[in-house]
């Protein structure tokens, strides 16, 4: 079961490295930073905003 992230929280969260807004991938439960090429996981509705726990994006995943 996936727990949705509070939309208000999504408004204030940015990528900790680049400080740009994040893209919410609801299906994958990830917050994506295209600029940093990282996907921050959301576990049990809790965004994990740690650079060393983020998944590196494949080139094709990055939206320009």
């Amino acid at each position: 079961m996936t727990q949705d992230v509070d939309p208000k929280l999504l408004e204030i969260l940015v990528c900790p490295l680049t400080k740009v807004p994040l893209r919410y991938d609801r299906a994958a439960q990830e917050l994506i930073s295209d600029q940093a090429g990282l996907a921050y996981p959301i576990r049990d509705g809790i965004p994990i905003m740690l650079v060393d726990e983020a998944r590196k994006l494949e080139d094709r995943e990055v939206r320009k």
Binding site: D6, L9, C15, G45
Partner: peptide, 18 residues
């Protein structure tokens, strides 16, 4: 409240958001 896990050396909050 919402929990997030973050590193307080690299904060994930937008400018002027809190």
């Amino acid at each position: 409240p919402c929990d997030i896990v973050a590193d307080n050396e690299v904060l994930p909050f937008a400018g002027h958001s809190l």
